[in-house]
Simulated assay, not measured.
Amino acid sequence: MKVEGRGVQSIEVGGRILTALIELGQPTMLRDLAARAGMTSAQAHAYLVSYRKLGLVEQNPANGHYFLGPLALQLGLVRMRGSDPLRMASDTSIELSEATGYMVTVTVWGTHGPTIIQVHEAAYPVHVNLRAGALYTLTGTATGRLFAAIYPFEVVRTLLAREMRAEQKAQHLPSGKSREAFTEDFDEIRRLGYATTEGVPVPGINAVSVPVFDQSQKMQFALTAIGPTSALDVRTGSRDVAGVAEAINRLSEKLGYRPDLAANPAPAKPRMRPRRG
Results as ranks from 00 to 15, higher is better:
A46L: 11
H112E: 10
E184S: 11
G113S: 02
T105E: 06
Q9V: 15
I205V: 11
G176P: 04
L48H: 00
L86G: 11
I189C: 00
Q118I: 08
E23Y: 14
T100W: 02
T139R: 07
E154D: 15
A142C: 04
I94A: 06
L138P: 09
V49E: 06
Y194I: 05
H127P: 06
H120N: 11
I150T: 10
W109E: 02
G82I: 12
A222K: 00
N264P: 05
V3D: 12
R258C: 12
P259A: 05
T158C: 14
F67P: 03
Y151L: 12
P203V: 04
D187T: 09
T236E: 02
R145N: 05
E188T: 09
D240H: 04
P174S: 07
E23T: 15
E98K: 14
A222R: 01
T139H: 07
I248K: 00
G55R: 03
S41W: 02
E154R: 13
H65N: 13
T224Q: 05
Q74E: 15
N60W: 04
K269A: 09
E4I: 09
N264W: 09
H45Q: 09
G243C: 01
Y124T: 02
R79W: 12
E12I: 13
R131T: 04
V126D: 00
R87D: 13
K269E: 10
E58W: 08
T105R: 02
V13M: 14
N129C: 10
A170D: 11
T197E: 04
D214I: 04
W109K: 01
N264G: 05
R276M: 06
L54N: 01
V210K: 01
V3I: 14
V208W: 01
R16I: 10
L192R: 10
Y66W: 12
I205A: 01
D214Y: 10
P125Q: 01
Q74L: 14
H127Y: 10
V57Y: 00
L232V: 00
T229V: 02
I22D: 11
Q9M: 15
T137W: 05
P201S: 03
V108D: 01
A245N: 03
G199W: 01
R157T: 15
A37N: 08
E246I: 10
M29K: 14
A247N: 06
S41H: 08
R165Q: 14
D214W: 12
V241S: 05
R157W: 15
A207S: 11
I226G: 06
E98R: 15
Y151N: 07
G133I: 00
G25W: 05
R16K: 14
V106Y: 04
N264M: 12
S209D: 03
T19V: 14
S50G: 07
A148V: 12
V200M: 13
L68K: 04
T224M: 03
E253Y: 13
V49S: 01
E4Y: 15
G277P: 05
G5Q: 07
G199C: 02
S90A: 13
H172K: 14
E180G: 09
H112S: 08
G176H: 10
R273Q: 08
L255K: 08
T236V: 01
Y257Q: 07
Q217F: 08
D187H: 11
